[in-house]
Deep mutational scan, measured.
Amino acid sequence: HTVDVQGVTYHFDNPEEARKFAEEMAKRLGLQVHVKDGRYKVE
C-alpha cells in the first residue's frame, strides 16, 4: 500500500496504517487525500 506525499513515496504493509498516515499528513500539511489507482496521494 502506497502513500505519495508531495512526490515522496511511503510504503505500508497494512492498508489501515496507510490510510491513517495519509490522513495525518494531509491534516498536517493542509492538503487533500486523493485515492488514485489504489494509491493514496496527498496533494
Score class of each variant (00 low, 15 high):
L29F: 06
V35R: 05
Y10F: 12
R19Y: 08
F12A: 01
P15G: 14
H1Y: 12
H34M: 08
K36G: 06
R39F: 07
H11F: 13
A22T: 01
F12K: 01
D13F: 09
K20I: 12
R39T: 08
Y10E: 03
H34A: 08
H34C: 13
F21C: 06
Q32N: 07
K27P: 01
K41I: 15
D13L: 10
K20L: 13
V3A: 03
H34N: 09
K41A: 11
T2Y: 15
Q6D: 07
D37P: 02
L31P: 00
Y10N: 04
F12N: 00
R19K: 12
V8R: 12
D37M: 03
E43R: 05
E43S: 09
G7Y: 04
K20D: 11
T9P: 08
P15V: 11
V8I: 13
V35H: 08
M25Q: 11
E16V: 11
L29A: 03
E23Y: 15
V8Y: 10
F12Q: 00
G30P: 00
E16W: 11
Q6H: 10
M25I: 12
A18P: 01
F21G: 01
V3H: 00
E43H: 06
H34D: 05
E17R: 07
Y40W: 12
A18R: 01
E17S: 12
E17F: 07
D13K: 09
M25H: 06
D13A: 10
V8K: 13
E24L: 11
G7I: 01
R39S: 14
V5H: 04
G38D: 06
R39M: 13
E16N: 11
K27Y: 09
H11Q: 11
D37S: 04
V8H: 11
D37R: 03
P15F: 05
R39N: 15
V33P: 02
R39W: 09
T9H: 12
G7F: 04
E16Q: 11
L31N: 02
V42D: 03
V35P: 02
H1D: 06
F21Q: 02
R39H: 15
E23T: 09
F12H: 02
V33E: 01
D4Y: 07
L31K: 03
R39C: 15
H11D: 09
V8W: 07
D4T: 07
Q6I: 14
Y40C: 11
F12E: 00
P15S: 13
T9L: 14
F12R: 00
R28A: 12
V42R: 00
A26T: 02
E17H: 10
F21S: 01
G7K: 05
K27S: 11
T2M: 14
E24Q: 11
E17G: 08
Y40N: 04
Q6G: 08
G30C: 13
K27V: 09
E16A: 10
K41S: 14
V42M: 02
T9D: 07
D37E: 06
A22C: 05
V42F: 03
D4F: 07
E17D: 14
K20F: 12
L29R: 03
V8L: 11
R28K: 13
H11A: 11
Y10I: 06
V3N: 00
Q32F: 08
D13Q: 10
L29P: 02
Y10V: 06
E24R: 08
N14H: 13
Y10K: 04
H34T: 15
K27W: 07
V33C: 08
T2N: 10
K41V: 15
V42W: 01
N14K: 11
E43D: 14
T2P: 14
L29Q: 03
Q32T: 14
D4S: 07
V8S: 08
Y10W: 08
D4R: 05
V5K: 01
E17A: 12
Y10L: 05
V3D: 00
Q32G: 06
G38K: 05
V33A: 04
H11K: 10
V5N: 02
D4I: 07
Q32R: 10
H11W: 13
G7P: 00
E16F: 10
A26H: 01
T2V: 15
K27F: 10
R28M: 13
M25T: 12
R28I: 12
D37C: 15
T9A: 10
E16L: 10
R19W: 08
L31R: 03
K41W: 15
V5Q: 01
E16M: 11
V8C: 15
D4W: 12
M25K: 05
E16H: 11
R28E: 10
H11P: 08
D13M: 08
T2S: 13
K36I: 15
G30Q: 05
V5L: 09
E16S: 10
D4A: 06
